[in-house]
């Protein structure tokens, strides 16, 4: 597991775990649910060009930190080679520093369903 994703009644919390906390230079992201537009299981996203790295790490199979591409700023914390890439989810945001989060999580299906259900309840 690279990222612990939890939901409060009002926010989505993303906490890179272990060494990923250091590579990504991020202790915790707190996103108000009102700024979360949706979550998707997207294993193929790990194969996309990531763009330019700001602070962060890019070594084969592992991307952590802030990347910009085509004017979009994204937070990446994806690793584990194939097994990790298969567990990649994408969270689209609005009115935030990051337009998009690319995260390896332990349970992609459960995490994506929980995020989408949480934002649906608010609308």
């Amino acid at each position: 597991m690279n990222n612990a994703v939890t939901l409060t009644p009002d926010a989505l919390l993303v906490e890179p775990t272990g060494l990923d906390r250091m590579w990504s230079f991020t202790r915790r992201l707190t996103i108000p649910l009102a700024h979360v537009r949706g979550a998707t299981i997207d294993p193929d996203a790990a194969a996309e060009p990531k763009g330019l790295r700001h602070p962060g790490l890019a070594v084969p199979g592992k991307w952590a930190g802030t990347f910009t591409k085509d004017g979009d700023t994204s937070f990446w914390n994806v690793s584990g080679r194939r097994s990790g890439h298969r567990r990649t989810i994408v969270v689209q945001l609005d009115q935030e520093k990051y337009q998009r989060l690319y995260l390896t999580v332990a349970d992609p299906r459960g995490t994506v369903d929980a995020i989408n259900a949480a934002i649906t309840r608010r609308t």
Binding site: G38, D42, D44, D70, D72, Q92, R100, V112
Partner: peptide
Amino acid sequence: TSVDDLLRATGLHRGSLYQAFGSKRG
């Protein structure tokens, strides 16, 4: 249907798809 399937079918880039619809569910 993977996101890559949807990108091939629609001709959109990954970022544009998420920007426009939020998610595959959207």
